[in-house]
Structure formats: C-alpha cells, structure tokens
Amino acid sequence: MHYLLASGVDWHVVWVRIGHPNHPFFLALTRTVYIAVIAQIMGVILGLFAALMRMSKLRIFRILSGIYVWIFRGTPLLVQIFFIYYASNQLLGFTLIPNSLNVGLFSLDGAIFAGILALGVNEGAYMREIVRAGIDSIDKGQMEAATSLGMRRGLAMRRIVLPQAARVIIPPLGNEFNNMLKNTSLLFAIGVYEMFADAEIGYSNSFQPTEYFLGVAFWYLVLTTVWTFIQAAIERKLAASERGEELSFRERWQEAWNPVSTRMFSGGQAR
C-alpha cells in the first residue's frame, strides 16, 4: 500500500519545493504575482472603458467595443499571447514589443511586457461584461435622481452609479483575479520565467514530474488562498460601509470561505 501511494516519489524533493524553495523560485513567484496584478489592473481599466463605450450614444464606440470583445473572447488566450509576442510588431509595422523595456532603473523583458499586454487585453474583454452587468444592476432611479439634481450623466456615473456598481463588480472581479494568477502560467510558453516555468525546467532537468508539479501546484494554491482572504476583506469593507456596520468575527470567517457574497444582492438596501 505504501509502495502504491509513494511509487518512487522522492518526498524529500517535494518537501524542499514546498518548504525550502530556492532563490530562483522566489524570483519566479514574485514575477507571477506582479504580472497578474498589472495585467488585472489593465483589464479593469480596459473593461471599464469598453463598458462605457458599449453604452455610448455614438454608434462607432459601441461597434468598436463589440469587436474588441468578439475577438478577445473568441480566440484562445494562448494564441493571443503568441500573436502579441511574435506577430504584433510585424503586423503593426512598428515596435510594440521591444526586446527589453528600460524605464530608468527599471527594466522589463520583452516577453514579460508582451505577456502582461496579452493577459491584460484579454482580461479587459471579460471585465467589460462584468462592469456592464454591474452598471445595469443599479436601479435606473439612481441616474434619474442624480440628473434631476442637475448632475450631468458623466458626473452621475462617476459619483453615484459606479461606486454602487463596484459592490456588484468586486465578487466576480475577485474570481477573475484568481483566474489571472493561474493564467500567468501560460507565459512560460513564450519564455517568461514565472512559477510554472521554474517547475517545468526543474522537471526537465530531473525527470521528477510529481515532485516539481506537486510543488508548484502547492504554491499556486497558496497564492489563490491568500487572495481569497484579501478579497473577503475588501468585500467586507464595502458591505460594511453600505450597511453602516462591521461584521462579527464569525461572519468574517464564513465570508472568507465563501467569498462570492450573496448578501450583496439580497441584503442591499431596505426599501
């Protein structure tokens, strides 16, 4: 039984990968995190603009927004990553993706830059739908009340509608970031040294797939778990400001394990 379970797995290597990761691994982990964070921020900004364009009075904006989502949701992420890294310079006729990007002391590898761009643009297409659903979920009376007070639509959107929509957007946004953390692993295919690349290289040097892939799976799980707690904290803060109260410890605990809070939709505002 013991033999079946362990079947030649070197548990010491697994333990080292989990408990005593080396320096290159930590660099890779850091890279995974910052790529995910920057790409997600980019996705949110692009998604917000695309959602506002989708609701514009001008038909050309609506069409552009539609084409954007159509293309980036309709093709595989891996294809987009390869396309942006290898083909975009040729297609555009100018250097969108440099070999390396130097801004002062800060230097970014071209592949990382392309990877962030691809992940961010792809994410924007998904975020557009999330942002739009969030805005649509806000009662029309809010816009009417704001404009009746003499606010113009843009101001009313910024001050009244979007802050309320944010509460609806945050839970699915959290799930998107969870996906983003994992999708960064695709960038190993264009040579970005992130967490999965580190594991992949370790495996090909040692031919110990279980050890290396189990180790890296563990670390992805650590990242997504930490994020789950951060997300719960953000949601708690938003919900508390709406209801004007803080949550009990027990509620926090429950929310941490069940972050897509259904309270947001049911408990909202008392009429």
């Binding site: 704001a146 404009t147 639509r153 309320q164």
Partner: peptide, 24 residues
C-alpha cells in the same frame, strides 16, 4: 444640450415615489 438641460434641472426639485436616495 445635456449641459443646458442639467442647468435647468437645478431649478426644479424632484421627489420620487421610491425615494431614490444614494445608498452609499
């Protein structure tokens, strides 16, 4: 224009059946 309509509305107060207070 939207700007003019907004300006005119500052002179007209509106109270709604469903209140429409800003919940945040």
């Amino acid at each position: 224009s939207e700007r003019n309509i907004a300006r005119q509305r500052t002179q007209i107060g509106m109270v709604f059946q469903r209140f429409n207070l800003f919940p945040h």
